[in-house]
Simulated scan of single mutants.
Amino acid sequence: MANVVFSGTVKKVMADSPDDNKSSMYKGEIEIKRVFKGNDIVNEVANVFFDQVRNHKMVMVDGFGDPHICESKIHSGDTKIFMLNKGYNGELRLNSSIMPITLTNLEYTEAVVKPSFGV
């Protein structure tokens, strides 16, 4: 049900409070590795940084630490699969639990978001 699905690495966590025990939500800056779904939305909201090897697409994501989502906490350096929706304010927002990067999860994610054609 997410509008945007990608794998990426957390580059920066912007918590309102340094107290990790506080249950407030926070934002994170994510470097995108691979977009599975919602490439148009990603291109609309991403900041692109160029270097000699590759283009870095960075996005700001809100909703980490949401108590209604089981796996919603991040740390700098985490590489995960993120499922997001574009919020009313134009920012990306966490839609469901963050998935760890495993071969099974990558294959499953690709299969789920791949458009299916009638058989």
Rank of each mutant, 00 (worst) to 15 (best):
A2P: 02
V5P: 06
V5C: 01
V5A: 07
F6Q: 08
F6P: 03
G8A: 09
T9M: 14
V10C: 13
D16W: 06
P18M: 04
D19M: 02
D20Y: 11
N21T: 01
S24M: 08
S24P: 04
M25A: 08
M25G: 07
M25L: 11
Y26K: 06
K27T: 09
I30M: 06
I30D: 00
I30V: 09
E31P: 03
I32G: 04
K33T: 15
V35L: 04
K37H: 07
G38D: 05
N39L: 14
N39W: 03
D40W: 00
D40L: 01
N43S: 05
E44L: 07
A46L: 01
N47T: 15
F49H: 10
V53W: 14
V53Q: 12
V53G: 14
V53N: 15
H56W: 03
H56R: 13
M58C: 13
M60W: 10
M60I: 15
V61M: 12
D62N: 15
D62W: 15
G63H: 10
F64M: 00
F64R: 04
G65W: 01
G65I: 00
P67I: 10
H68M: 15
I69W: 05
K73T: 12
S76V: 13
G77D: 05
T79W: 00
T79M: 07
K80Q: 12
I81C: 02
F82G: 04
M83P: 07
L84Y: 02
N85V: 07
K86A: 03
K86W: 00
K86L: 10
K86Y: 03
N89C: 05
G90V: 05
E91R: 13
L92A: 05
L92H: 01
N95M: 10
N95D: 13
M99V: 13
P100H: 14
T102N: 04
T102D: 00
T104E: 03
T104S: 14
N105S: 08
L106I: 04
E107Y: 00
T109H: 00
T109G: 01
E110G: 11
E110V: 04
E110T: 01
A111L: 06
A111D: 14
K114C: 14
P115E: 12
P115R: 15
P115S: 07
S116W: 11
G118H: 06
